[in-house]
C-alpha cells in the first residue's frame, strides 16, 4: 500500500529523511536507502536543509521516483520567490512527484552561505495557499494553468515553539489551506510525542512524529542548544555514561518509535542511521509487534 493510500485509510505511516548530494553522485544515497525500500512509505527530500547547499530537491525526488522510491519533495520559501516556487512546484508536478512538504525555511545565517540574500517572499502559509491555487488550476495571479498538479501536501509543527496558541492557530491554518499530513520536529519523550499527536489530530491532519536518533553527546548538545527542553536530562545522563552512545541513542529512538505505534499515526526518521537495522526494526513493527495490525 502506498503513502497516499495510507494517508487516507488510517494505516500507520513510516517516513524517513534524506538530503540530496552535495554534488551530482546520487548512487551512494540510493544504495544507502535500498534496504529500506519495502519498509519506508516515503522519503522526505530536503530543500537545502539548514541553509546548506545541496542538489535540487525536485531533481532528487525525480531520481528516487525513477528508482522505485516514493519521494516527499520539500519546498521552502528561503531561496525562491513566488515566481520560482510556482515554477518548481509545477515542475514537480510534471515529474510525477505526488507528495510535497512545505515550510518557511531556516534563515541563511544558520547555514554555510551566511552572506546569501534571504528571500522569504512567501512563508509556509502562503506557499500552501499557492499550492491550493495551483491545484485549482490557477497561478497566484489568476492565470489559468494548462494542466493542473495534484499533490498530497504536508507541513510541519514544532511542539517546543511558542507562543503556543499562535503555533496551534498557525497549524490549524496550514490544515485549512490543504496540509493533509504534519511532520514534527524531533521529539525525545513520549509525553511530547502524545501532545504533538493530539494537537495535530485535532487540526484534522495526519500526525507524523519526528524522531532524530542521537548518536553522540556532541549531537545531543547540538540538539539541546537548538531546543533546550527537547532532550530529557535522564537521557543525557545515560548517554554520557553509555559505552556505545551511538547504540544507546539508536535504541532510545526505536523504543520511542514503538511507543508511538501504540497511539500514533506515523513516525518520521530524520536520520536513517544503519539502514539494515532500521529495516529490521520496521519489519518487527509490521509483523511481530503488538501493534502490527495498524500497518
Amino acid at each position: 500500500m502506498n503513502f497516499s493510500k495510507k494517508l487516507n485509510n488510517g494505516k500507520f505511516i513510516i517516513t524517513a529523511e534524506i538530503a540530496p548530494p552535495r554534488g551530482i553522485d546520487t548512487d551512494k544515497i540510493l544504495k544507502g536507502i535500498y534496504p529500506l525500500k519495502e519498509y519506508v512509505d516515503a522519503f522526505n527530500i530536503t530543500d537545502n536543509q539548514r541553509s546548506m547547499v545541496r542538489a535540487s530537491s525536485v531533481v532528487m525526488s525525480k531520481v528516487l521516483l525513477d528508482n522505485g522510491f516514493e519521494p516527499i519533495c520539500q519546498f521552502t520559501g528561503r531561496d525562491r520567490n513566488r515566481i520560482g516556487l510556482q515554477s518548481d512546484i509545477l515542475g514537480a508536478g510534471i515529474f510525477g512527484i505526488k507528495n510535497i512538504l512545505v515550510m518557511t525555511g531556516d534563515f541563511p545565517t544558520l547555514g554555510d552561505e551566511q552572506g546569501a540574500k534571504p528571500v522569504f517572499d512567501v512563508d509556509s502559509l502562503q506557499i500552501l495557499k499557492m499550492v491550493k491555487l495551483l491545484q485549482e488550476g490557477k497561478l497566484i495571479n489568476g492565470k489559468e494553468l494548462n494542466g493542473k498538479p495534484k499533490f498530497n501536501i504536508g507541513a510541519v509543527f514544532n511542539p517546543f515553539a511558542g507562543p503556543e496558541h499562535l503555533q496551534i492557530a498557525k497549524l490549524n491554518k496550514k490544515v485549512e489551506l490543504g496540509a493533509k499530513f504534519i511532520q514534527t520536529q524531533p521529539v525525545y519523550d513520549i509525553k511530547t510525542a502524545k501532545y504533538a499527536h493530539e494537537i495535530i489530530e485535532q487540526s484534522g491532519a495526519v500526525p507524523i512524529i519526528g524522531l532524530l536518533p542521537i548518536n553522540s553527546l556532541k549531537m545531543a548538545n547540538f540538539i539541546k542548544k537548538l531546543n533546550p527542553h527537547s532532550v530529557p536530562d535522564s537521557f543525557l545522563e545515560k548517554l554520557s555514561k553509555a559505552k556505545d552512545p551511538y547504540s544507546y541513542g539508536w535504541e532510545y529512538a526505536l523504543n520511542l518509535a514503538q511507543s508511538v505505534t501504540e497511539f500514533g499515526r506515523g513516525i518520521h526518521f530524520m536520520l536513517v542511521g544503519k539502514t539494515e537495522d532500521l529495516a529490521q526494526f520496521i519489519d518487527y513493527l509490521k509483523n511481530d509487534s503488538p501493534y502490527n495490525h495498524k500497518f
Partner: peptide, 20 residues
C-alpha cells in the same frame, strides 16, 4: 522578524527567543 513573517511565528521561537 528576520523572515518578516506576518502570519505568526515560525517554529524556531524557542524559549521566547528568536532562533536567528
Amino acid at each position: 522578524c528576520p523572515k518578516s513573517l506576518r502570519y505568526g511565528p515560525c517554529g524556531g521561537a524557542i524559549n521566547k527567543m528568536c532562533e536567528v
